[in-house]
Design a protein around this nucleic acid. Structure first.
Lengths: 344, 344
DNA sequence: CTGAAAGCGCTTACAG
DNA sequence: CTGAAAGCGCTTACAG
């Protein structure tokens, strides 16, 4: 540490004030509301700030104002690439607004998630929950303290960002049906995943309409490993195609099927959801229902920020704001296609 | 917001103190140094804390103590999957220590990076710079204010984490030489990337020793797109194999070569560096020099934390601390192999 | 346009 | 073991 201006080694507005010969409050004004200060002092303060290499301490500022300039982002599993896009989107949006992101992970545990949220709560202006595992009441309780935005889940009265999956699922089922598939398996996500249940419901409704069979295959984890493990059950179900809760599951499933000499897509078609990085690296490239994850992250950040006192501040659902880009769309690549050797 | 205990809607130690009937300072002690308070009051305080759902405000605590419990992490490009592993490693390590990560991005610009660091500086206990683009003096200046740890770069007197790339490069060159390759191209990283220069130097030395030719191919960006663009120059160089600054470059190069009907690895071998997520999804799977990125993130966080007043606090280089796992190792997969149809 | 004062929520010597 | 006081760095009515 360098010879200190202050205990923490940095210059404060008092140092600036002394150098300029004004009151600290004037420095504060020159910094925060320059129009309320004479051009001359403004200039003097700027010079002193530059000379002392002064930066305002956002933490100290946060105390009297209640605004920290920090937004928390809690993801359930930082290992999961889907969240990378969300993090990226939120981070970029944050940068635009001069806000900084605080990152935490719930490791798929509702309790860890709640604790992380509690801990972040006092030091942030608001929190984004990406794919939360917490209960609705817990989330609502949280949202009563500070703005909360939820991604991929709907909670009454809480701002949420959930891209419309229906067009994607519809397109996928239609696509598979057209290729001769009659029974479509669904590899589900974690039990507490709200969005997994929605996707399954949507698939059921769609298959009913299209007169196709469908079957739920539970998985041990939303990972490639989980997909691998589920492969046997998928095969045993008699389905000839699968739509998976996420791309990781789909990739794992495909790998395991191929390891068992099941040809994709000739013998079996695989469809993922998300379009994560690398999903087009596989052979065949993964057909997937692309979810605008990065946009979701950005939208969630915008929601939090606009819910802050000073903004318009009406809770709303991003998908209802006419954010037309927040919908899932089918991306047909190589892993889905005509059934060459039906198993039934 | 709920009916407020305080302006920000939360209970403070004053509320707890009032409820218990003690002085706020006693509450503070009961929370921070419970052994300095009678068992009875400690219990009373705990109950009141639970009843009021009180959480200490880390920001307010930070002001008198100078410790924020926050560590900043600045990456040059959040879009680059290599950084995901670093972020992940740092985040996990942070969670273990009850520390929270603040995330920022420099978008490959030295200036943006410096600004981000300046902004983070007052509100964090220390900062991790992953693949910094800033100049040495700037980094040193930063490190004089708060603990700094640098990943994939060496700066005099600054804690740094840089996995030993040499064993990986050596193994790669040996491997390629054994497969009949005589000229090896290197697709370089960004100009300001310290580690790119080191990797190139290392390759030159190794090729010299092994009596192989090598040639530097500059790239426009460390992305798949950059790899694609470089493909033509790589081909023109007469090299029959390439080692790339990172996997993204390698994957792009491979894609473009394949698009031009160049067979990998029969006509040309491609080797990446990092072993990012998805690098084994390609066909052929990418041979790569695996870098322990996640461990680097964790090690950097440990360095920052241990440099804090109260810890032993001697700057050192992680690789010198006997962290044997921090070395790169060759992962031979399908994208490298025997030269079937040499071009020269 | 600027100063002096009080306060944001917490901690920590200093007394007792 | 506990209270009263001062202070961390900043902001914002309130006067002038």
């Amino acid at each position: 540490m360098k010879s200190a201006k202050t205990a923490s080694g940095r210059a404060t507005i008092y140092d600036v004030a002394k150098l300029v010969g004004v009151n600290p409050s004037t420095v504060s004004r020159a910094l925060g509301q320059p129009e309320r200060v004479s051009l001359k002092t403004r200039k003097l303060v700027q010079d002193a700030v530059a000379e002392l290499n002064f930066n305002v301490n956002p933490l100290a500022r946060a105390l009297p104002t209640g605004r920290t300039g920090l937004v928390g982002l809690i993801v359930s599993d930082i290992t999961n690439p889907s969240y990378f896009d969300i993090i990226r989107g939120a981070q970029s949006a944050a940068a635009v607004h001069g806000t900084t992101l605080m990152l935490a992970e719930s490791t798929e545990s509702a309790q860890t998630e709640a604790i992380a949220a509690q801990r972040m709560q006092p030091s942030t202006d608001g929190i984004i929950l990406a794919g939360p595992r917490m209960s609705d009441p817990d989330i609502i309780a949280l949202s009563e303290q500070k703005p909360i935005a939820v991604i991929n889940r709907h909670v009454d009265g809480v701002d949420s960002v959930v891209p419309d999956i229906e067009p994607g699922i519809n397109a996928a089922v239609r696509h598979l049906a057209a290729q001769g598939h009659h029974k479509i398996a669904f590899l589900s996500g974690p039990d507490q995943s709200w969005i997994s249940a929605r996707r399954w419901e949507c698939l059921v409704a769609c298959c009913e309409w299209m007169k196709r069979e469908t079957q739920l295959i539970p998985t041990t984890a939303p990972t490639t490993e989980g997909g691998r493990i589920a492969a046997r059950n998928v095969r045993a179900s008699g389905a000839t195609a699968a739509i998976c809760y996420n791309d990781l599951l789909a990739i794992g499933l495909m790998q395991e099927l191929q390891a068992a000499a099941v040809k994709v897509p000739d013998d079996f078609s695989v469809v993922g959801i998300d379009d994560i990085f690398g999903s087009d690296f596989t052979t065949p490239a993964l057909t997937t229902i692309a979810s605008p994850l990065s946009e979701c992250g950005a939208a969630a950040l915008d929601l939090v920020l606009s819910a802050l006192p000073g903004s318009d501040g009406n809770p709303r659902v991003a998908t209802q704001r006419g954010l037309h880009e927040l919908r899932a769309t089918l991306l047909v690549r190589g892993s889905s296609g005509k059934l060459v050797a039906p198993t039934q």
